[in-house]
């Protein structure tokens, strides 16, 4: 059961990513997660929101993204909710940086970073909503599923 839930809603524009990072940092720090975990979480959430802005909403800034920080006894989950094009997790493949450099590609690392940084990454769809959940467990919690 959640001990606390905190929500911020931002327009789907990259200039608001900083606000999301501050929001996540504030609540994860208050929930007494380590500095390393807070750093990893805020980057993972930034990547998730940037993906929504660029891919789910195709750069259209008039939509919105809801970000919930759900603090529980053993973990913290950030839920990122949008109503754009759904992300197809099965299409993911790990990027090869040498291939990316030779093709002069500037994007495509976000999902990879999220998977590296968060203990658990899940995607759900509910009606028109797409929800990405990023979970960090407390260091003494038993389960990890990177």
């Amino acid at each position: 059961m959640a001990r606390s839930v905190h929500t911020i809603t931002i327009p789907s524009a990259t200039r608001y990513l900083e606000d999301v990072r501050r929001f996540v940092r504030r609540h994860a720090t208050r929930a007494e997660f380590s500095v390393e975990t807070v750093n990893a979480l805020q980057l993972a959430v930034d990547e998730a929101c940037a993906n929504v802005i660029e891919h789910a909403y195709g750069g259209v800034e008039s939509n919105s993204i809801d970000v919930d920080v759900v603090v529980k006894r053993d973990c913290l989950t950030v839920r990122i909710r949008d109503e754009g094009e759904p992300f197809i997790d099965a299409a993911y493949r790990e990027p090869d940086i040498f291939e990316y450099a030779s093709k002069k590609k500037s994007g495509g690392f976000g999902v990879h970073l999220m998977r590296k940084l968060a203990d658990r990454v899940e995607y759900r769809s509910r009606g028109k909503s797409n929800i990405c959940c990023l979970t960090m467990y407390r260091q003494d919690a038993p389960q990890k599923n990177r």
Partner: peptide, 16 residues
Amino acid sequence: YISSAGLGVFMAYIEE
């Protein structure tokens, strides 16, 4: 702070 978008700039230019 850096996110993948920043890293991507280095990636896009290094070969050129």
